[in-house]
């Protein structure tokens, strides 16, 4: 099922992704990557995954761009232009082949919103039925993340904590 809004959004997504790779200036590349995240978040919102769209917009288009820009300012103030060698023969053969394989596999995927697909028959109905009476939380995504799968979320928090510690250990220099 194709929505009329999807096609221009997907085209913009493709254009910004290709632009972020092909453009010669690193600064423009970073800004195009932020635009790409923004269009991607619009697509998530269009699919109904509002929480994912929110995270994508805030982290991908907001925080990620700021971190990339700070890295650029901190490392290479002058020489931010890129020289790219032409793609090798292996790249030209393998990547189109991979794309064809993925398109071939995508034809076997269940349709969007299919009630008989494995993802919506296993445990999701139980969550959706019992979430409110179990936890008094109208947002099912939050109740699954923070209550039913709380241990997973805790380990994800550990991952973020570890990332912050690793950045501090690697990047902060000794005081003189």
């Amino acid at each position: 099922m194709i929505f009329p809004f999807e096609i221009p959004l997907l085209l913009l997504l493709l254009v910004t992704a290709a632009g972020a790779i092909l453009v010669k200036d690193l600064m423009s590349s970073v800004l195009l990557l932020g635009t790409y995240s923004f269009f991607l978040s619009l697509i998530w919102a269009w699919f109904g995954a509002v929480d994912v769209a929110f995270v994508e917009a805030v982290v991908g288009a907001g925080l990620g761009t700021v971190l990339f820009l700070l890295t650029l300012f901190g490392t290479a103030p002058k020489d931010t232009r890129l020289r790219r060698p032409p793609p090798s023969l292996v790249t030209l053969i393998v990547f189109p082949l991979l794309g064809v394989l993925m398109l071939y596999a995508a034809s076997d995927l269940p349709g969007f919103g299919d009630p008989n697909s494995p993802a919506s028959t296993h445990i999701s109905p139980t969550y959706i039925e019992r979430s409110y009476q179990d936890t008094h939380t109208p947002n099912v995504v939050t109740s699954v993340l923070m209550d039913y799968r709380s241990l997973d979320t805790m380990v994800e928090t550990v991952v973020i904590f570890t990332a912050g510690i690793a950045c501090a250990l690697l990047l902060r220099r000794e005081s003189k």
Binding site: I160, F161, C167, A168, L171
Partner: peptide, 23 residues
Amino acid sequence: VAVDVAVTAVSIVFSLSAEEIIE
């Protein structure tokens, strides 16, 4: 989770921008 993520975001920005100051 919010406290952890907020502190990590600020910490990474400080790591990237001001090493001597923060130490």
